[in-house]
Write a protein that binds this DNA or RNA. Structure first.
Lengths: 133, 133, 133, 133
DNA sequence: TTTT
DNA sequence: TTTT
């Protein structure tokens, strides 16, 4: 069991890429407000990297409020100094468009993940850009 | 809204520390099996860093199977080269002990998080060890 | 583990009651849109009974959009014909106010549930009204 | 957004039916332990009706411990006295087999739900038995 | 009995 | 680097 459920807002427009096998993947950061103010009385947020397989960028832009349900994924890689680094991201499986846009109340069921072989393509992509966000 | 729900097994005994303000915090890594085998037919897992405020180490050890519900937290810090690094961890709010130990079926409600000022202590702690896992 | 997470809108103003022990409880129905249209092309919703311990009615009214996280509770009782009936409700533990009101983005942590003995009071209350919605 | 996550044990073997359109549906009740003992010091449980589309009965039997993730569904019908009755059930979308059987750690992704027209068949079925549990 |  |  691996479930993540978040409500937040996009900090920027999604970054959209196509894999060599023809899949579309959008990545963005979701600002999720924390429940409590910090000791300085400031509201804080967690900035969570989100990956969505499928075409959603037409529904999402900077500031959009969404509910995301998906799973937590932890990838590791070795950086240039040979130190192991970890990348944690939420792979979205459902995106709910909430809040005051014309898409309000709608929802898109997104692809479960890359089909066989796609992970490889994705890593090829990632070679160019290190990691996708 | 920020919810994470995981079922997995501890990869090692929890690492327990006490803050200067007298709180106990346990950290460990949870191995969460992925749903699908990879393209080589291997089962993979995500290794998720977990933080539990409160005394749970007496219930948890390497190999224990648990259900965790909590929230995703993303901290950032600047490493020695001035590069911004991110640490993602799950702050557990509930721990369910499942699987075949004498505590099976039990559950502990854990503290919501550190009270005012504790985060600072925690960072002092973290100075020694970089990050807690 | 028993978690429910819903996003929806109140079908009416909350119904607020006070227990004999001085606790406040609000109940309402949440309309949660289904993911898919039915075979007639109609959008449908599930109408889920929600119970919130604590004072939230000042933040909630008919049409308010909220995220609810809580737990599923199934109560049983015998009706007048001696037939066992079941009441399923979601006990809210967190309420997120989303959507376009002045409270937008805020959140209230609500009480975990009635303390010792309160359930009884609640049942006394329920005698008057059968079940609270 | 409509998510339910439960860990519990089957109170009995699943009840398996086939729809006229050839789909298989299993229903059972999941006993989910409550977090706290009641005021008499007794452990209590919620008994939650679960519906799983697809063939899982070979993996599930009375006493099996499972994690269920799915959605809450509320159906209504009018009883013989013309009184509106509600049936609340969890439509499972994922079933995790946990606890000490040979299937331990495995998981089955189950069908999303009945395809077009199936609901009707299901209601036909339900005519015989009132509701499926 | 239902919300947008 | 961050959203309202």
């Amino acid at each position: 069991m691996n479930k993540v459920i978040l409500i937040g807002r996009l900090t920027r427009d999604p970054d959209v890429k196509n894999t060599t096998s023809g899949k579309t993947v959008a990545t963005f950061t979701l600002a999720v407000d924390r429940r409590f103010k910090n000791k300085d009385g400031q509201k804080e947020a967690d900035f969570v990297p989100i990956v969505v397989w499928g075409i959603v960028q037409q529904y999402l832009s900077k500031g959009s409020q969404v509910g995301i349900s998906g799973r937590l994924q932890v990838r590791s890689y070795d950086d240039n100094d040979g130190k192991r680094r970890y990348v944690t991201e939420v792979i979205a499986e459902e995106v709910n468009f909430i809040g005051g846009k014309k898409d309000s109340g709608n929802q898109r069921q997104v692809a479960e993940g890359p089909p066989m072989g796609l992970d490889e393509d994705f890593h090829l992509m990632a070679d160019d850009d290190d990691i996708p966000f």
